[in-house]
C-alpha cells in the first residue's frame, strides 16, 4: 500500500562505494554494483527500483552527496 513511489540517481563517477546508503535504505533498494567506476569503486545503484519510496534516507547519510532523490504519488 505504498502511497509514494520514488527513485534515486547516483552520480556513479563520484560515488566511493562506502555502502552506507545500502544500510540506510529501509526498503532494500540499493546495492553496490559489480562494476567499478573510474576510481575503482563499486558504486551504488538501484537494484530493486520498484521498492523505492523516495524517503531520502540514502541521500541524508551519503558522505559524498552523490544521490539525488525523486518522489511522486503512486498513480
Amino acid at each position: 500500500m505504498a502511497k509514494f513511489i520514488g527513485a534515486i540517481v547516483v552520480d556513479t563517477e563520484k560515488c566511493k562505494g562506502c555502502g552506507l546508503c545500502v544500510v540506510a535504505c529501509p526498503t532494500k533498494v540499493i546495492e553496490l554494483a559489480r562494476d567499478v567506476n573510474g576510481k575503482g569503486y563499486h558504486y551504488a545503484h538501484m537494484a530493486n527500483a520498484a521498492a523505492c519510496i523516495g524517503c531520502s534516507s540514502c541521500g541524508l547519510v551519503c558522505p559524498d552527496t552523490v544521490i539525488t532523490v525523486y518522489r511522486t504519488k503512486a498513480s
Binding site: 513511489i5 520514488g6 531520502s56 558522505p63 511522486t72
Partner: peptide, 30 residues
C-alpha cells in the same frame, strides 16, 4: 519519476562540486 519537479533531495548549492578528499564513508562528508 525522475523528473525535476519530483526532486525531494539533492545537493545544496552551498556545497561546491569539488569531489571530497575524504575516505569512503567518512563522517566529515555527512
Amino acid at each position: 519519476i525522475i523528473n525535476e519537479e519530483n526532486v525531494v533531495y539533492k545537493k545544496t548549492s552551498v556545497l561546491l562540486d569539488n569531489e571530497m578528499h575524504y575516505c569512503p564513508g567518512c563522517t566529515h562528508g555527512v
